[in-house]
């Protein structure tokens, strides 16, 4: 039986599938973020002095900010390379048979892993000389170089832990099998253990790189002309107009997001792939 009624409550309801926010495509999230940042600026722009829209101003400054961002990337890649090299050594030290080496490597790792990055950066900035005199040779230590050194310290400590963790995560049977085949410890490490560790280390290592890249803006606090410093200077040059803050810093955020998000996605994919293989 069907009753005719105007009351909507009586009508059969087919509930719609909720569309969750996380179901959005990355570019859709980006677009929303972009609109959220620029929206308020237009509101400001209408009441402010109608010279140039905030967007046009940002457009003028964008090349400089991009250059600054590329400098951030240079710092991140260099600090990562240096930190990885030192951290790998330290990590191997942590699994050394020598108690002294192990203890030393453990202490250095723990010390730098549990130190705030900014404090380490300050240390590198203000305790390192501005140049190094090697007899006749004068090697200058510019600020950006010191920033790289400072940021490579926590990277080193974290890489050290990644190496140690990966080696410890292998089943002890791998060591025993190698030992029973008369491999030396060094051969066991280089031929059998470490090759298996590489894929275990890759995801956390890339994660660390992502974090480091975002931490490079700390260098602005100690005066390196990276993207944050330049953004601050650009805003000051525009007379510190408050409606410019959101577009400018939003632009910087988007730069980092555009760079780090793919790395994060790729890391997740690697993790999944390796989990299947294991």
């Amino acid at each position: 039986m069907r009753y005719k009624t105007d009351l909507p409550v009586m009508m059969p309801i087919t509930p719609r599938e909720p569309t969750p926010f996380i179901g959005l495509k990355p570019w859709q999230i980006l677009l929303i973020a972009l609109l959220a940042f620029v929206g308020p600026s237009f509101a400001f722009a209408q009441t402010g002095i109608p010279i140039l829209t905030p967007f046009a101003i940002l457009f003028d400054w964008a090349p400089l900010l991009l250059k600054g961002f590329i400098f951030n990337l240079v710092i991140s890649v260099s600090a990562m390379a240096l930190g990885t090299a030192l951290g790998a050594l330290l990590g191997l030290g942590q699994i050394s048979l020598s108690r002294v080496t192990r203890g030393f490597a453990w202490f250095v790792t723990q010390f730098f892993r549990n130190a705030p990055w900014l404090v380490l950066l300050f240390f590198a900035m203000f305790l390192l000389p501005f140049e190094l005199n090697l007899f006749v040779l004068k090697i200058p230590f510019p600020d950006w170089f010191k920033a790289i050194l400072g940021l490579s310290l926590p990277v080193m400590a974290n890489v050290s832990e990644i190496v140690r963790g990966a080696v410890k995560s292998l089943p002890s049977g791998q060591w025993e099998a190698a030992e029973s085949l008369a491999y030396t410890r060094r051969q066991t490490l280089w031929l059998i253990i470490l090759p298996q560790c590489v894929k275990r280390m890759l995801p956390p290592w890339m994660n660390l790189y992502s974090i480091l890249t975002m931490a490079t803006v700390l260098a602005s606090i100690v005066g390196v002309s990276e993207v944050m410093t330049l953004t601050g200077q650009a805003l000051a040059a525009e007379g510190g107009r408050p409606e410019l803050l959101a577009p400018f810093y939003g632009f910087v955020l988007l730069l980092f997001f555009a760079y780090c998000y793919p790395i994060a996605r790729f890391t997740v994919r690697l993790e999944r792939k390796f989990a299947v293989i294991d």
Binding site: P171, G173, Q174, E176, A177, A178, E179, S180, L181, A182, T184, I192, P195, Q196
Partner: peptide
């Protein structure tokens, strides 16, 4: 000299312990 000993004594394990890579 453990290495010399282990060249003479082979071993096979319960969990095979092959090198997966």
């Amino acid at each position: 000299n453990k290495l010399e000993l282990r060249k003479k004594v082979g071993m096979v394990f319960q969990q095979y312990n092959l090198f997966p890579h």
